Simulated assay, not measured.
Amino acid sequence: MSQLQYKFNKNDEYYTPSYAVYPIISRLKEGSTIWCPFDKEESEFVKVFKKEGFNVIHGHIEDGQDFFEVEVPKCDYIISNPPYSLKNDVFKRLYAIGKPFAMLINFQGIFDHKDRFEMFRSNTLELLYLSPRVNYIKPESDKATGVPFQSGYLCSNICKNSLEFESLDKTK
């Protein structure tokens, strides 16, 4: 079911610009292996992490790799921009997997859902707040567009503090 929902929910496919990948890099061990479970080869996550010397494993629903069904590869971190409509299920699976993770998400209303609130309260949670706003790229476009919401990384066992701030360099 998750595969069908994700595959046909057009509001879930927004591409991350490269400048939004860099803030998480300083929080990772050099040369580690990162699984990007919602990314294709041309994803900025994949390209930037490889350029910075990380080993990258990527997968995407369109390539037949359903995050909810695929076996977890051997990795040190799980990092991506997940499908927003499935955020509850994504975070449940991430916590069940037990690996450090960082998911770039829309922070608007993230704690409004009772089950999600309880899940975050009872697990390790860090927020990496990014400024200014991340401008995502729609699949049918080749340029970033402004968004009415604030994004950042929701992490577990990645940041030193429960709340951290990072200024974006949009020239990267």
Rank of each mutant, 00 (worst) to 15 (best):
P37S: 05
N88T: 07
E69D: 12
Y6D: 04
I57Y: 02
L4Y: 09
V21S: 06
F49M: 06
I34R: 07
S141N: 10
P37G: 03
C159G: 13
Q108N: 13
R116E: 05
S26R: 11
Y6A: 07
P83M: 07
V147Q: 11
C75T: 11
L86S: 06
G64W: 01
K51S: 11
R133S: 05
K170L: 03
L28Y: 02
I105Y: 05
S85I: 09
N106W: 13
A96W: 08
F91Y: 14
K74Y: 02
K138L: 05
I105C: 15
P17C: 10
N55P: 02
S156D: 14
N11R: 14
S141W: 14
S80A: 15
D112R: 05
G31Y: 07
Q3E: 14
V90F: 00
R116H: 00
E118F: 00
E42A: 08
I79R: 05
S167K: 15
I25E: 04
N11E: 12
S131Q: 12
L4C: 01
H60V: 12
I25R: 08
A96I: 11
E52N: 08
I97Q: 04
C75G: 06
P100D: 06
E140Y: 13
S43H: 00
Q3T: 13
V48Y: 04
K160C: 08
D39G: 04
V48I: 14
I97T: 06
V46I: 05
K47F: 00
E118G: 01
S18L: 10
Y22G: 01
G152V: 15
N157E: 09
L128P: 01
S26N: 12
P139R: 14
F8C: 01
K160D: 00
I137E: 02
R27A: 13
K138G: 10
G59A: 09
V72F: 00
K170W: 00
K74W: 04
P37K: 03
I25A: 08
Y14N: 11
G53D: 11
Y95W: 07
C75E: 01
L125W: 12
S156C: 11
R27Q: 14
S80Y: 11
F54N: 04
E62T: 13
K51H: 06
Q65H: 10
G64E: 06
H113E: 15
K172M: 12
R121I: 03
E41N: 15
A144H: 06
S162P: 00
S85Y: 11
E118D: 03
I79L: 10
Y153D: 02
N81Q: 09
K47I: 09
D76K: 05
P17I: 08
I97F: 01
K47R: 09
S122N: 09
I105V: 15
I137T: 07
Y84R: 09
F111H: 05
L94G: 10
S32Y: 03
I137S: 08
K10E: 14
K172C: 03
K92V: 02
C36V: 14
F107S: 10
N161W: 04
S156M: 15
A102Q: 08
F49T: 02
Y19G: 12
P139L: 15
G59Y: 01
E41C: 04
I78N: 00
K51T: 01
K138I: 07
K143Y: 13
E44P: 10
T145H: 03
K99I: 11
E42H: 02
I78T: 03
E126P: 00
E126W: 04
G146S: 15
A144C: 12
I110C: 13
K10W: 06
L125E: 11
Y22R: 05
R133I: 07
N11G: 06
